[in-house]
Structure formats: C-alpha cells, structure tokens
Design a protein around this nucleic acid. Structure first.
Lengths: 156, 156
DNA sequence: ATCTCATGTAATGTTATTAGTTACATTCAG
DNA sequence: CTGAATGTAACTAATAACATTACATGAGAT
C-alpha cells in the first residue's frame, strides 16, 4: 500500500463496532483490520479523546461508540486522528529567499490550499450514518443473490 | 520536509534555466536547489523525454529549455515526472471483500477522485510563462526598495 | 589523438517515517 | 486473587525518499 490509510482503517473499525452489540475488543478489531491490537489502541486513542468512542478495561471490556452516528462526519474523524497532511506533494521550502522559488510557491500553494479545502469540505458532508446506510443497502442487495455468511468473506 | 517536492523543485530549476542564457550544468542547478547534480539529472530525465528540455554533453554542455513557456502548463510538467500520487491518504485496500470496507472505499474514493481532478485541472491552468511573469513582477517590486544582488539571496 | 568537461545510469548508502511487536503496568469483573 | 482487558513506552522491521559514489559515454578544446 502506498498511501497512509489511517482514516480508511478507522472508519472500517467504527462501522464494525456499530454493527456489534456491546464493546469490541482490540483483539477482535485487529483481526478485522488485519493488524495488531496495539495499533488499534493507538489510533483509537485520538477518537476517545475527542469523545466519539469509549474504552473499558477488564472483563467484558473493549471499545464502544458513544456518539450519534448521524452527527459525526468524516471530517470530525479526520481531525481526531492527527494526520499530518492530506497532500502527497508540497513546496520544497516554506519561506525561501529565492524570488524564483517564491513565485513557484505562490502558484502551487494556492492550488494546494484549494485542494485541501475541497477535501475537508467533502469529508464534512459525509456522516458515519451515511456510510452505515450505504453498507446496509449493499448488504441487502447481496442477500438477495447469495447466502452470505457474515460481514467478512473470510471469517465464515 | 515532509512532502514530496519534486514538482516544486523542478519548476524552480526550470525558471532558473529560463533566466540563464545558454545551457546550465547540473552542477549549477544543483547548487541552486541545494542538492546533488545526479538528482538533477534524474528528475530532468523525464522532462527531456517529454521534449521540454534538452541536455548536451561535453564542453559547454548542460541543460536548456526547448519549449514555449506559454504553451506548457504545470500539469504537463507534473505528467512528465512520474509522481505516484497527489494525495497523502488513500484507501486501505483496493478491492476488499468486506462489505463494510467497500462502503468506506466508495465514500472516500469519490472524494479522493474529486480532489485529484481539481489539482490536475488547476495545474493545467497555469503556464510556465505565468510563473515567470510573476517572478519578474516581484523582482521589479524588490528593485525599487533594495539593491538586489542576484536571484538568490545567498549567492551574493 | 587525447584531455577535460559534461551528461547517463546503475549501485549503494543514508535517513526518516510508518507499521508492527514486545513487555509490562493498570484496571476491573467475577 | 485471578484473568481479561486496556494504556503506553520501548524496540524492531519494512519502506520510501533522498543523496552519493562510481564508472561509462559523448563532445568540444588543444
């Protein structure tokens, strides 16, 4: 995989949690994400601080969603993971002395800012509930044609 | 620096070449870019293949621009450097079996595609000539207030 | 001709970042 | 008290971007 996929991964985890009654353990979530439980705890820490999920220790513990899915957008989730940047390219240096480079930075910077703004705006327009609805729709569509065994194809 | 800055760097180099009569050596360009001559040759290779610049070996050799600055856009330059992706984030996997992840991918993918399209479109609207004009404008503005010593502040 | 200056390019080294793992402390239900 | 869970620091591994070295090739100067 060439791109940072924390956002994609976290959304996947959240939707799985939403489908599951009671808390999900890091262990379980890690299996669905094909990663390590510690990685799950690490990325979920940001969401907990932001108040979207909650974690409980001990017997019967694990992670639960504690927000209204229709009130939280992808933008909120993105903000809660402190990802460095949305764009893979950028200016060579922030404040160059060279006038040539300043001209380049002005032109590129304007474009980069527009693109970032677009991404954030679009993320802000999609709620977790919409993702969940879309998932349920595709689930129903699939049920019609095949006998589904579970959410994952591989955990039959 | 956290982002890939090949595009920014190459544009810087091109504008310097445009200001310079006759070919510029990789050595010279590398000094302006604060990097190694081999790096210059490497990234310029793509531009040469695309026909925007030309390189000559031997005495008096080096790099020259062989295109009309007002006919080449940042998009053209971007295409000539084979940069992998414009966005720093992406989907966890391209074609997941998991229906939950498919729903996530659909939503994110749409947004990513829009953002990429916007970037490319904006790049396509800016020519090298525009960058050069902007540089000359800022050059003139600076001349009015200080005695400029050269294009770079540091190569006085 | 040959010497020097330049590019072309493969191979290698270096550094930074990210993901993954281990280890151990902490907390809580039973 | 025991066992199951998270919290977190420290360490390791994998990857990618960038820089460097080394050497081959080509072109002009003498």
């Amino acid at each position: 995989m060439r791109c940072d996929s924390r956002l994609s991964g976290v959304l996947h985890v959240l939707l799985h949690m939403a489908e599951h009654d009671g808390p999900s353990t890091s262990e379980t979530l890690a299996r669905a994400m094909e990663t390590n439980p510690v990685v799950i705890r690490r990325v979920m820490a940001g969401l907990r601080e932001a108040g979207y999920v909650r974690s409980e220790k001990g017997h019967g513990g694990g992670w639960s969603i504690v927000c209204d899915l229709s009130a939280v957008t992808l933008r909120d989730i993105y903000d809660a993971l402190d990802q460095p940047s949305l764009l893979a390219i950028g200016n060579r240096s922030a404040e160059p002395e060279c006038l040539v480079e300043q001209a380049v930075n002005r032109a590129l910077g304007k474009v980069f800012d527009e693109a970032e703004a677009l991404l954030l705006e679009r993320f802000g327009a999609v709620t977790l509930q919409m993702l969940s609805d879309d998932f349920h729709k595709s689930m129903r569509a699939r049920r019609k044609s095949t006998h589904s065994k579970g959410v994952h194809g591989h955990d039959a």
